[in-house]
């Protein structure tokens, strides 16, 4: 399909890649900093949120997902949603033990 192939060879310029990399480093620093705060329950959520942001950056830029067609993005979303459901359902056990 044309819309898949159109952008698959999109070239990202180095400055942009370096910027993403710097952002990732900053977020890593943030992870370390957050791990030293006493946030109670929010602790896990905070770390998870940062991890999600980092994953998003890697998938969007380094793995080119930002420049792919709708089909591939949809499939990726489906996979992530499935994983979220799998993990989510284990909480019927974990949170009620």
């Amino acid at each position: 399909m044309a819309d898949i192939e159109k952008d698959s060879h999109h070239i990202i310029r180095y400055p942009k890649l370096v910027m993403v990399w710097v952002f990732l480093l900053l977020l890593t620093g943030l992870t370390v900093w957050v791990s030293r705060l006493d946030l109670g329950v929010l602790h896990v959520w905070g770390s998870l949120a940062i991890a999600v942001m980092k994953a998003f950056l890697v998938i969007a830029f380094f793995m080119h997902m930002r420049y792919e067609g709708r089909l591939l993005r949809g499939l990726l979303l489906l996979t992530l949603v499935t994983l979220a459901i799998f993990i989510g359902f284990t909480f019927f056990d974990l949170s009620y033990r």
Partner: peptide, 22 residues
């Protein structure tokens, strides 16, 4: 069928809630 897996685990010490749902 992807959401029923814990029916293999009813005797393993999972929560009653999980037993009910699965």
């Amino acid at each position: 069928g992807s959401l029923v897996w814990a029916h293999h685990m009813f005797t393993s010490g999972i929560s009653d809630m999980a037993v009910l749902v699965f």
